[in-house]
Design a protein around this nucleic acid. Structure first.
Lengths: 180, 180
DNA sequence: ACCTGAACACCGTTCAAGT
DNA sequence: ACCTGAACACCGTTCAAGT
């Protein structure tokens, strides 16, 4: 008897649950965060989550979309800065979410929802990268290869330990070679 | 009252459990395979597994070592073949275990055992690649960067869907650029 | 439409007891 | 030293019942 039934808008409450999940998934990781923990942080009973999300993977997708949309929005404000700067900013930005990258790959073949999201994300990223390189004068054939290479190198850098020097060297090579 | 106590050697039985786990982890994936399923396939009670392995991650490490040792042994017999052939063989070989690659990355920060194994594996692979490129006349500085790039591109190819044409193009670029 | 307490099936792991 | 049945704590999810 308090905050239920229309006292709070559906989307607002859904957003509050996403807030809690967002925070916990980043700090503790997806697998280490139980639905019970998310519910507690959001101030609801565990099963209430299932009114707003079909399952835990669905909640993950909502969290992922938040991160991606935020990154895209912030990147848009940096379009006129040098490309190496943008690349480095993107790396630092995604480093915070590197655990989620691993989680997505691990859950892809257990959850259709996650696999669809993953494939869509890569299609979008790939198109973005190819278009940029083509507009810089690179042939579409080469741009296609370099987009794939660039994506996987960044993913690898994110999910493996590195000295910042080694990382800088690789980013430098990438920026020079890709003509991003 | 049958196959217990010294009737079967410790290491042999441990190997039989690894056999079962190896098969199930590849077919169903690590997370989808319960310890109960491994035990059943090996013909023992679930808790018997814990006499031979400290926990599920320990069992995974044993399975991973099997795959790696097998791959190294087979690769050794191909040392005189062209490098692009070797690279392609390695890709196909590891493609069978691509789910385990994702699993290792996802479990790294929950399990010390897995993280240690992962870091060791990359150190070994990196040294192998760098040595080979240096022996082909590449500077150590460039070889270091290219080893990192090559490793991550291969990891990316393994864990993402691709047309075989796109994969061939990237491998070709890699073989040409790396001077592996 | 929204929320909940209680339950379900499953999981990795442990324990006490056996040989 | 090796093996087991039974139990434990936890998990994602569901159900019946409430407002």
């Amino acid at each position: 008897m308090a905050r239920n039934k229309r006292e709070v808008d559906h989307d607002v409450k859904r957003g509050q649950i996403e807030d809690a999940a967002c925070r916990l998934f980043l700090v503790d990781g997806y697998e280490a965060t139980s639905m019970a923990a998310v519910a507690k942080a959001a101030g609801v009973a565990p099963n209430t989550l299932y009114w707003y999300f079909a399952n835990k993977d669905d909640l993950l997708v909502a969290v992922l979309d938040r991160h991606v949309n935020q990154a895209i929005a912030q990147l848009a404000t940096k379009q006129d800065q040098p490309l190496s700067t943008q690349l480095k900013w993107l790396l630092v930005e995604f480093q915070r979410t590197s655990r989620l990258v691993s989680t997505v790959h691990a859950r892809m073949d257990r959850s259709d929802t996650i696999r669809v999201w993953h494939d869509r994300f890569h299609a979008m990223l790939d198109q973005m990268l190819v278009d940029r390189m083509v507009s810089k004068g690179m042939s579409r054939a080469k741009a296609s290869v370099m987009a794939t290479v660039g994506t996987y190198v960044v993913e690898g850098l994110l999910s493996h330990p590195h000295t910042s020097q080694q990382m800088d060297k690789v980013v430098l090579w990438l920026a020079g070679n890709d003509q991003l």
